[in-house]
Write a protein that binds this DNA or RNA. Structure first.
Lengths: 336, 336
DNA sequence: ATGAAAGCGCTAACAA
DNA sequence: TTGTTAGCGCTTTCAT
């Protein structure tokens, strides 16, 4: 099935030159190769549809021009944009991307690091989900540079981080709710296990404090980042008789669920209850065009991560662990 | 930066055996290697965290255990599930997946085929968008097996196809509308360039014919697979004074846009206008939980494609070009 | 049960 | 300006 591929040797023989010459021509190291030779070789190569074997090349150069992208689940609408951003930047620089879904499973993450190492990727972009902070993780054993997206974790191999300031973003969001006149602001969180989530909570609390609003434990509901949980949480709030006039949600999916349930309860948005989401994932604006939310620059995060990674790979290898904090944007629509 | 990696040679030396022995042990070709040796080698390998270099291996075996996945755009909600299905199957069989976004660009597709060939992927899953039928395309030059998803195209390298019967699916959908009592059924198509689209149109027309409903050109609006187009098309229908009582949409995005616009025009769904989508993409049910639609088994398509591909790669290389037609499902909700 | 040796296709000195 | 050669790390006969 696989047609026998023509090699550099075939080309060299047919052109009557050495393989070194052909190699140089194909690597643009042909400063001093006569135009005639170059043309002849090129023609023959084209004629036989010669495509260099990058395995062989990589074996000697130690570079595969391939990156790994580890993320929880490409089906989660949060990730395709990141993937796309990364792929665009990668392609631009001649790299390809191997995609790895981990389902938030730590073992799977480690497994992938091993596979990627085996495949000799030049670097890894890592959007890990679970907190690795308390783990003597596989990251240490990884031999290539790693860029972290959306998570802060320290390790020798981590050469860069692309983050957003979750605390500040939440703070801004809640401040907006307060300025709109809401006072009893509940918080439906997706989780409290990640630093991301903790920071968001912190921002929320600080906004309340700074405005002399008393914080109450019962205002906080912790579940998952899914719209179903948004619905459940609202139900819970009502069942528990919590008195609230606004909801700050851990992400847009939760917000969408919450809005739906609020309407079922006959609440008007934003007159009765103000609501705010987080993430502004693809299609969220389609689902609830009126949802006020905090927009996380996913495409840009992927793009920047790839950029940093490639720089770390190709750069002068100085240990410049860099950290970019991207701006979030408060997108105010009609829900608050 | 890149730590010097330990090689099979290091292990062999330390274990006091030949590299051939180590190699055999790692490839489970160790029928006749003493348990003692095996254990010793394994321990030393573990100790030094030895990870075989798959470049070197591939160079001799001609197998990279890597597949290419070419698709228009991972951000389009149609594709993540396909990608995930493919990745799951691939991983299960020890393969990785390189992802390639082409933006429906033929040149980009060809470019990727070249890159993937260079990287020596073992096969390619191809969800191409534009019609390749009239093109002396790069597919011919590809050296590895290809599985097509959702598109029918013939070429030597195409070892399999995963399709749905678009004509039949549309037919079923429109029949449903007719049974519900709708008679003036318009069709907002996303395109008419692809075979897929042509088949869907054919199914639509046949359903009308079979029920003695006259087909009218003005019933058909052709645009793009986006919700914005759904909105525009509805506006157009009204502006042109087309008399209709139902809309069959090229995909769910279009349907969602159409519904939104219909509501703006004060139409009740399904009392005034019945509506039906196609695809049942992720989140579509969130956006419009009541949208009646035709569910395309995306995850399964990706999964099956990877399965066929791996079989073609590892199989006995008989030229069994296979073709699977997956079942669509009519998901009836409240919009029709 | 194990080792020696010949490559896989290519790059990168170093020669010429 | 071009050719020779020594590997890169591994698999795979063929010997032993």
């Amino acid at each position: 099935m696989k047609k026998k591929s023509v090699t550099i040797k075939d080309i060299a023989k047919e052109a009557g030159v050495s393989i070194a010459t052909v190699s140089m021509i194909f690597n643009n190291k042909d400063k001093n190769i006569s135009q005639g030779t170059r043309d002849r070789v090129m023609n023959i190569a084209k004629l036989h549809n010669y495509i260099p074997n990058s395995m062989a090349r990589s074996l000697v150069t130690k570079r595969t021009k391939t990156l790994g992208l580890i993320l929880p689940d490409i089906v989660n609408p949060f990730f395709p944009e990141i993937a796309r951003g990364a792929e665009d930047k990668a392609r631009e620089s001649g790299y390809s991307i191997i995609i790895c879904n981990t389902d938030d499973n730590l073992e799977q993450e480690d497994r992938y690091i091993e596979i990627l190492t085996e495949k000799m990727v030049d670097g890894i972009i890592f959007t890990h989900s679970a907190d690795r902070n308390n783990t003597n993780s596989g990251l240490e054993r990884c031999r290539v540079p790693i860029i972290l997206i959306d998570r802060d974790y320290d390790s020798d191999n981590v050469k860069g981080k692309v983050l957003i300031d979750n605390g500040e973003a939440s703070y801004k969001g809640v401040i907006h709710l307060i300025e709109k006149g809401y006072r009893k602001i509940t918080y439906i969180a997706g989780s409290l296990n990640t630093q991301t989530a903790k920071d968001r909570l912190k921002g929320y609390r600080k906004a309340l404090e700074d405005n002399g609003i008393e914080f109450e434990e019962k205002y906080i509901k912790v579940g998952e980042y899914r719209s179903l949980w948004g619905m459940e949480a609202v139900t819970l709030l009502f069942e528990e008789g919590v008195d609230f006039d606004a909801i700050f949600c851990g992400n847009d999916l939760i917000a969408i669920g919450a809005m739906k349930k609020l309407k079922e309860f006959g609440k008007r948005i934003p007159e009765d209850i103000g609501i705010m989401g987080f993430d502004d994932i693809y299609m969220a604006s389609l689902v609830e065009p009126e949802l006020t939310t905090i927009k996380q620059p996913n495409y840009e995060m992927g793009h920047k991560a790839a950029q940093m990674l490639i720089r770390a790979i190709e750069g002068n290898e100085k240990n410049t662990e860099s950290k970019i904090i991207l701006e979030t944007e408060l997108v105010v629509r009609k829900s608050s």
